Simulated scan of single mutants.
Amino acid sequence: MNDSLGLSIIAGVPVPVVLIGRDERVNALNDAAMALFGPSGRGRHYVTVLRHPALLDCVEEALRLRQPRRARYLRSDLGRDSTYDVTASPLEGVAAGGVVLSFADISDREQAGQIRRDFVANVSHELKTPLTALMGFIETLRGPARDDEAARERFLEIMAREAERMNRLVSDLLSLSRVEAEERMRPGVRVDVAALLRTSVQTLRSLARDAAVEMTLEGAEDAAHVLGDEDQLTQVFHNLIENGIKYGGSGGVLRLVLTRSERELAFRGPGVRIDVIDRGEGFDPVHIPRLTERFYRVDNHRSREMGGTGLGLAIVKHIVNRHRGRFRIDSVPGEGSTFSVMLPMA
């Protein structure tokens, strides 16, 4: 096939395409293919251009058998893994003897599949531990501890705690599912976030007192209206305050600060910012990019002991996204952490 003809055929194709002639040399690549294999591949033998074993086998079989062949091409570029579904199709007519190689990017599909597999594995693991404990205690109560009143009371208390843990997990899973389903639908009701913060602080005051944490609220004296969902924003504040008390409580102080800005950089317009600041142990900033992933924990054992499900910050992130806001986390080991929610004002 002549170069100009090959280029004219594939230039407008949006996916990477490589034309290989009967002489086994690369006759043409479109721009997308050049981004994958470089601009200097034309005229060279396909082995020196493609190099990936799965691609080479695919092309070789298509050339030899004159039948379409498929392969999977994995590529890592600048820290991002990409997956391509590759089809090698024999050419007929004026290009008889050659092969056209096309690359369909299925990275998003593969990532979604991996997320589903990870999700099922994580949920199974989170449920298996309390279920195993419950089954063991039930077996013990039916047998050796049948007439041991002290052991029975102790086991029933542990069983109730494990059952409550499963209940929290299921509730958070349902909440996360609802939030994700509504994430593209922006709320349209005016909500006073200052009033929601005051109510959340009042509701969780006893929890802070029991943990010997002094909780303060600043800047919430006057109304601050946003377009939002009252229940979901309340859930955001509850999650962040509870986390601050549980994991940052060692510092003895939890500050909630509401500030208003006529030009919030995140929105290039008026916005409101809510900072939840603790003076606890903090954590290594290396964890920050993954903290909003489902079931990700900085300290697995401690989180479970405190009743955490590993879903709280994932719920916060999706709710803030639905409100077209921004969620930011900062932490310094030994100095504490700050969780910030920025929302555009109504």
Rank of each mutant, 00 (worst) to 15 (best):
A150N: 14
A151S: 15
A151M: 15
A151R: 14
R152I: 08
R152M: 15
E153D: 15
E153P: 01
F155E: 13
F155T: 05
F155C: 11
F155A: 15
L156W: 01
L156R: 14
E157D: 14
E157P: 04
E157S: 15
I158E: 08
I158Y: 02
I158V: 13
M159E: 12
M159I: 10
M159S: 15
M159P: 03
R161N: 10
R161Q: 14
R161W: 01
E162L: 00
E162C: 02
A163S: 15
E164N: 02
R165E: 04
M166Q: 02
N167F: 03
R168S: 06
L169P: 03
V170F: 03
V170E: 03
S171G: 04
S171P: 01
D172W: 00
D172F: 00
S175D: 03
L176Q: 04
L176G: 02
S177E: 12
R178A: 09
R178W: 01
R178G: 01
E182C: 03
E183I: 13
R184W: 05
R184Y: 05
M185R: 10
M185P: 00
R186W: 06
R186V: 09
P187F: 03
P187T: 02
G188M: 08
G188N: 09
V189M: 06
R190E: 12
V191L: 06
D192F: 05
D192R: 05
V193P: 04
V193L: 06
A194R: 02
A195W: 06
L197H: 02
R198L: 05
R198C: 04
S200K: 06
S200F: 11
Q202D: 12
Q202E: 12
T203S: 12
T203Y: 10
T203L: 09
R205G: 06
S206Q: 12
L207M: 07
L207Q: 06
A208F: 07
A208G: 14
A208K: 12
A208D: 11
R209Y: 07
D210W: 07
E214W: 06
M215F: 05
M215W: 09
E218R: 11
G219N: 12
G219S: 10
G219A: 09
A220T: 07
E221M: 09
E221N: 10
D222V: 13
A223R: 14
A223P: 12
A224D: 11
A224C: 15
H225Y: 13
H225P: 10
L227M: 14
L227F: 13
L227C: 13
D229T: 07
Q232A: 12
L233T: 08
L233N: 09
T234V: 04
Q235T: 11
Q235F: 08
V236C: 10
F237C: 06
F237D: 10
F237V: 07
